[in-house]
């Protein structure tokens, strides 16, 4: 296609028109290469600065004042606890809401109301989630600053992602499946459980991956709800006590303590995690398309 444009430019087109096309084409190429260069710069800069400091020790120990070393294991564990807890809670909430919207809801007014609410939730900035989470979960429900309070805040934040992806994949289940199940005498919930849900597992998994990606990158909402501690805990202790996730730890190390080496290591870990979640979500999405034809 681009070859055709190039040749037609030289075959007697008035100069202003040729200029117009050429300028715009130049603009596009410049902008595209700037964008791509930016991504490559970010990736390479982080990886190159992080590699010299990356060692097994730094990812497998906790910070020690005695030895003067910093390890990020507690932050990694906190992140895992947080994401797992939040996903376990958000999954039934989000999938249930999507099923209601797609399968049960009869009043269009209520559907509109719920969808408007979900869109609003998707647009609220994370710092506001952090404040409300602090007021409601930490103070009103007296969970204190703990990973659990952080996880609950993230639950509300990531509901829209789960609802949207689930709804989209519910819509791809052919109406005939539902009617077939009804025709065989199935009731609604039985039909959903045995016919509809198995068909859209992939969509739900994609939603989970996307939500996990968002949770991994979240920091502003966790600052006041999950806290800054770097202690090493098991799951039960960890979830009820204050703990920094990777992102919060990066912020604290970089901004408040000036420990740039550790910060680069954390940034590299986050970058890799982000790459993995993106890849998984995409691979799953593609797989889904293939299966559904």
């Amino acid at each position: 296609m681009s070859d055709k444009t190039a040749t037609s430019l030289h075959s007697g087109i008035p100069l202003p028109r040729a200029m117009y096309a050429r300028t715009l084409k130049g603009c596009m190429l410049v902008c595209l290469s700037l964008t791509v260069a930016l991504v490559f710069f970010l990736i390479l800069y982080i990886l190159i600065r992080a590699l010299p400091h990356l060692s097994w020790e730094i990812v497998s120990t906790k910070p020690s004042y005695l030895k003067g070393t910093i390890g990020v294991l507690p932050d990694i564990l906190n992140t895992i606890y947080l994401v797992v807890t939040a996903l376990i809670i958000v999954l039934p909430l989000g999938v249930g809401a999507a099923i209601y919207l797609n399968e049960y809801a009869k009043s269009p007014k209520l559907v509109k109301g719920i969808e408007y609410a979900v869109e609003t939730l998707a647009g609220i900035p994370s710092i506001i989630y952090g404040l409300v989470g602090m007021l409601f979960f930490c103070q009103f429900l007296s969970l204190q600053t703990s990973l659990l309070a952080g996880a609950l805040t993230l639950v509300i934040m990531s509901i829209p992602v789960i609802i949207r992806t689930t709804q989209e994949s519910l819509k791809t289940v052919p109406q005939g499946y539902r009617e077939g199940a009804y025709g065989l005498g199935s009731a609604r919930w039985h039909m959903i459980r045995t016919v509809v849900l198995p068909c859209c597992i992939d969509g739900i998994v994609t939603g989970c991956i996307l939500a996990a990606g968002r949770m991994l990158g979240e920091s502003a909402a966790l600052l006041f709800t999950a806290g800054f501690a770097h202690a090493l805990h098991g799951y039960i202790d960890g979830i009820t006590s204050s703990g920094a996730t990777l992102t919060v730890a990066l912020y604290v190390y970089a901004k408040e303590q000036g420990e740039f080496e550790v910060a680069f290591v954390i940034a590299a870990i986050l970058l890799v995690l982000c790459f993995i979640t993106n890849y998984l979500a995409q691979a799953y999405g593609r797989h889904m398309k293939k299966v559904k034809g």
Binding site: T35, L38, V39, L42, I43, Y45, I46, G213, L216, G217, E218, S219, A220, T247, V248, L250, Y251, A254, K255, A263, A267, L270, L271, C274, F275, T277, N278, Q282
Partner: peptide, 15 residues
């Protein structure tokens, strides 16, 4: 571009 969208905001701040 998806990667750019997924990079956490603290990493942007840090760089």
């Amino acid at each position: 571009i998806d990667l750019l969208a997924g990079i956490p905001s603290v990493v942007y701040g840090f760089i």
